[in-house]
Design a protein around this nucleic acid. Structure first.
Lengths: 239, 239
DNA sequence: CGGTGGATTGAGTGGCGTCAACCTGAGTGG
DNA sequence: CCACTCAGGTTGACGCCACTCAATCCACCG
């Protein structure tokens, strides 16, 4: 299988074989994490960043009374805590949603890339900028969309992101979350998430059994969510 | 007055005089915008980015029915659409809240910095990473905090950010927004914002008349908001 | 002195939260 | 092979936070 970060970046701008090599060489080791394991904790001062080869993770922050907000889902090809190269200490926690294989990349290697490979540096910068664009889109969804539209928006986004790395096609994908996890991502209660999922099912927009999601009416889902994929920057372009 | 971007970056890591010069030389012109003018519009493919020298701006996205969500407030020293160097087209709109003086920086100049000045590039990257960290914090606040705590959180954040560039001290600052604008930032209705502002006043946390805000009880505001400034990365550190 | 943008207030409504059961299916051990 | 457990999904009753609609107030301004 091809390196998923390379697949993801190539979608935005071509990389040279030399750049492929440099990216692959930057990985010092591959570590595995069990589902629900914390990969990086709030407060950590990391000396490496990690990139998902396989599995899903969340970024989240927990309040004093236990309420939790998930601020991102990450999938293979996502350089989950690349920002910890420059941003320290960590202000949130990264947790494995499923068993994960992560490519560990020392900050010394990232620094070296930043010193010697401007285009590759811009591409890594780009990947953090896309994360930020996703955050902005989530803010709009959580702030101004109805619960159903918000969920629809999340499904549209994940479908396109997964498709880039070959993990979704024909409007089907695996979404390894419980409704409790979904609630923490959408800023809703578990009970309400359940009702909203049922609403999307009843209206024929999705079929959803366990972790298997099938989008049955993409157009309607996009309309409900007012989804516009511009923010994902899926078009190739010199960067 | 010192260049506010330099002040802001120096707070996170020292810059050499040469780097100061390069940053200042990157500005091709200074433009002024009237309050409420759109500075960059959704869909634009920009060939320059702009940095605030004076004034406030918002980033926002408007839905089909006119509902609007503000995803960021920007103040002097913020390189508002630095991301448009790599991310195109714009997926949201930047609007002047007050009259603004903006330093326009051609993408060709940014590209050149990225080719020739690795440390400066990392510092610019850092500034976009801090923006992303702020987005994450906003997600937590909008998703899991009560309306009053959310507003308190915003006030804590703005106070610290303004202080960095010398625009706040002694727990006082100018916040040039109407309650309607605030509502669009907090994801609330105007009416409810009004009630929440009154609540903070009544409880003796803030005094707030027109655009002038005084934080009367910083500790209580921090407690209410569960505010932790880690995400702002205010400490100097080699980057 | 009327016009206008913004702040404030009240009344009524509804989306979503909370609490508490209950259901279902997969895994486990006797 | 069946009782038991347990995580997760589902449902109903009820309450509250925040929304909507609609006035009214206020300060500033031409």
């Amino acid at each position: 299988m091809r390196h998923p970060l390379i697949v993801k970046l190539e979608r935005r701008d071509g990389l040279s074989p030399h750049e492929h090599q440099i990216l692959e060489d930057a990985t010092s080791s591959v570590e595995t994490f069990a589902a629900n394991a914390d990969i990086v904790r709030e407060g950590d001062v990391a000396d490496h960043s990690c990139l998902i080869l396989e599995g899903w993770t969340t970024r989240s922050k927990t309040l004093a009374d236990g309420r939790r907000q998930i601020t991102a889902f990450h999938i293979p090809g996502d350089f989950v805590d690349l920002h910890s190269f420059l941003l320290k200490p960590m202000d949130h926690t990264i947790t494995a949603l499923t068993p994960c294989r992560m490519a560990m990349t020392p900050h010394t290697a990232l620094r070296r890339i930043s010193e010697e490979h401007p285009h590759l540096t811009r591409m890594l910068w780009l990947s953090t900028l896309i994360d930020a664009a996703i955050h902005r889109e989530w803010l709009v969804a959580i702030g101004r969309l109805s619960a159903a539209a918000h969920l629809a928006h999340l499904l549209c986004e994940l479908y396109l992101r997964l498709e880039v790395v070959g993990l979704a096609k024909d409007h089907r994908f695996e979404f390894p979350v419980t409704q409790t996890v979904l609630a923490d991502a959408l800023g809703l209660s578990t009970v309400h998430v359940n009702r909203v999922v049922q609403e999307l099912r009843r209206d024929g927009l999705v079929a959803w059994r366990g972790t298997h999601v099938t989008i049955k009416d993409w157009e309607a889902l996009v309309r409900l969510a007012e989804f516009d994929p511009t923010y994902l920057n899926l078009a190739p372009r010199p960067r």
